[in-house]
Design a protein around this nucleic acid. Structure first.
Length: 578
RNA sequence: GGCGGUGUAGCUCAGUUGGUUAGAGCAGCGGAAUCAUAAUCCGCGUGUCCGGGGUUCAAGUCCCUGCACCGCCA
């Protein structure tokens, strides 16, 4: 049991997935899944956890996807949020709340932050020229304007860059520009006003803050430093757009003269949703403002909170610079992130996973073919921490069959079935724990310490490898203790070995829960207990199920992936998603 | 073009502030055992640590340089 004084408070956020479509396994392993692992682990250790995620809903891509689906954008987003929430449940992502960046709470907070920043003199107005499309009835972002490249003559150059000659372009450079949405050439350059966040003014402050984070991974700090120091240093960024779908530009609750009809740019309101999500959580659960503010306001109880963010490496600049600039610039006591855990990319069979090209396995497809635990285990034990990593079907099949079916699943099976045939479905009585048991306990105590240390450091792969080693230790013990031999001469000795082994199943269930929650629950259920207390003392934990305690033999925990199945999936997922 | 990353056994990867004969898992080979999802356990690894040069008593581990692949940015 946890002592009250050990209890920590951990705020965890996962990068919020964009609303447009279903994410692939590379997205999952880069943020939501490791965040869930960490959340589950901390809950299991008795810490108080607030784990938040949401959908990122604003911006042009959402509008276009909705138009393509023939639905109003709000309706489209609501629907897709439901789809993503359902899939998250399927993967057992244990969010305390899965919010929406389009929520009322986020509208209010985003407008509030903008007001605070304006008051602090950190916002400036900029008048700029943008392309307006009469046919589309909207301003076009640079990349949605196509035309002929003045440099190389390529006729599908985009307004921001020519893909053919890679030359950086301005939309006005294009010859015969047209809308990439409608193809219309009825375009007009209009003068429009936008708000910019003066990030450049905060460069030194941000730099000092980054410098003070000496325990952050190099991947994280090097990206941040690059943006801070590259060229002319950190640039101011536009925080508004001429769009319909988004959070209306306001200064707190007041109108913002000259900004009528404009919305905040998605990069500005998306991270604020981390905070708003907590407010949504409170509202959804009948809590008060104070209940969520104690996670986010250091002047309202959040000073002892440790805040950890999980994300893919492409998201690092926003989390190390832009969002902190918003927080710091507000002049209010909002919680800043304490640790950023970032991930590299997962590749698929020799190439990249790609949402736009439909390449790889997507979250919904994964759940259609195998239970969540299979994916969770493989993805986490191969998480791209030190560099990009590679998914192949052969590796997936081998790892899952060996680790889950042969090492863990079979252990539970051999122990429970042996017991049932010799002693019945009850923890057997007789004999005592001897030298072999003491040696095992000592070994487990050591491995447990390493497992915990790696989990706390968010070393995902290493945690997985220690967990696996803990499973293996059970098989080693059973093999050398050989209760099937002992039973013939000394049934009491066999009883003691099996009593310990049955306790090991419960022990494994508890330790494995963060990785494979469904199997862990099945193991506990089979052992006829709901005691999922984290083991502090291994010897104590392994005598928790006493002689006479009833259990049941569980069904096969992990069916093996057959060669024909693997080959079928390999083919099925070889092409593009249709 | 600029910046960053990666390049270690057939495969996926570890290698902490440079220090004894470079490691793990899987695959492969041999053996033990037979309780179990033909699962488990034990034993077996000379691989130019991408190439070249340098610093050092000592480099996979630091510096320079070349090559390959990848990413980000412009």
């Amino acid at each position: 049991m946890q002592k009250k004084t050990d209890m920590a408070r951990i705020l965890i956020t996962s990068a919020i997935p964009y609303i447009n479509g279903i994410k692939h396994l590379g997205n999952l392993v880069g943020s939501q899944l490791p965040a869930d692992l960490y959340a589950r682990y901390n809950r299991a250790r008795g810490n108080e956890v607030m784990f938040l995620c949401a959908t990122d809903e604003h911006g042009t891509p959402a509008e276009l996807a909705a138009a393509k689906a023939g639905k109003p954008v709000a309706e489209y987003c609501a629907e897709m949020h439901g789809v993503q929430a359902e899939i998250a449940k399927g993967f057992r992502l244990s969010f305390d709340h899965f919010g929406r960046s389009s929520s009322a709470a986020n509208h209010k907070l985003t407008q509030h932050f903008a007001g605070q920043l304006a008051e602090a003199g950190l916002i400036r107005e900029v008048s700029e020229k943008q392309v307006y499309s009469h046919a589309d009835g909207r301003f076009l972002p640079d990349r949605y304007i196509e035309g002929t490249c003045p440099n190389c003559g390529y006729d599908k150059a985009r307004g921001d860059q020519c893909e053919n000659c890679t030359k950086q372009l301005d939309p006005t450079d294009l010859i015969e520009p047209r809308s990439a949405i409608s193809g219309s050439t009825d375009l007009e350059v209009r003068e429009t006003k936008h708000l910019y966040l003066r990030q450049s003014d905060m460069r030194d402050k941000l730099n000092d803050w980054i410098d003070s984070q000496n325990d952050w991974p190099i991947l994280t700090t090097s990206i941040a430093k690059k943006w801070l120091n590259d060229g002319d240093g950190l640039q101011d960024r536009g925080i508004t757009r001429d769009l319909d779908w988004g959070i209306p530009v306001k200064k707190g609750s007041d109108d913002w003269p000259g900004m009528e009809g404009k919305v905040f740019y998605v990069w500005f309101d998306a991270p604020i949703e981390y905070i708003a999500c907590a407010a949504e959580w409170a509202e959804a659960n009948g809590k008060t403002d104070a209940d969520w503010e104690r996670w986010w306001r250091t002047d309202k109880g959040a000073d002892d909170v440790r805040y950890v963010q999980f994300m893919g490496k492409d998201n690092v600049p926003f989390h190390t610079l832009s969002f902190p600039a918003t927080i710091m610039g507000s002049g209010e006591d909002w919680k800043l992130v304490d640790y950023i855990k970032s991930f590299n990319y997962l590749n698929y069979d020799g190439g990249q996973f790609s949402t736009s090209q439909g390449r790889g396995v997507f979250m919904d497809q994964a759940l259609e073919i195998l239970p969540a635990d299979y994916w969770r285990w493989w993805l986490l034990s191969h998480a791209p921490e030190s560099g990009d990593s590679e998914f192949t079907w052969e590796n997936f099949q081998q790892s899952v069959n060996k680790d889950l079916a042969d090492v863990l699943g079979n252990f539970a099976s051999r122990v429970t079935k042996f017991c049932r045939s010799k002693f019945g479905e009850v923890v057997p009585e007789g004999g005592e724990y001897g030298e072999q048991e003491l040696a095992l306990i000592k070994e487990l105590q050591e491995k447990l310490a390493f497992y915990q240390a790696h989990m706390e450091a968010m070393e995902v792969r290493k945690s997985a490898s220690y967990l696996r080693a803990i499973w293996v230790a059970g098989n080693e013990y059973l093999q050398s203790a050989a209760p099937w031999s002992a039973y013939k001469e000394d049934p009491d000795r066999a009883a003691a070995i099996i009593r310990l082994s049955l306790n090991l199943i419960r022990f494994y269930a508890v330790l494995s829960g963060p990785f494979i929650p469904d199997a862990a629950a099945k193991m506990l259920e089979a052992m006829g207990t709901d005691n999922a207390d984290w083991p502090e003392d291994v010897a104590e934990a392994l005598s928790l199920l006493p002689a006479g305690h009833e259990f049941t033999v569980p069904d096969v925990l992990f069916a093996k992936i057959q060669d024909e199945e693997r080959e079928g999936w390999q083919q099925k997922f070889a092409g593009q998603r249709t």
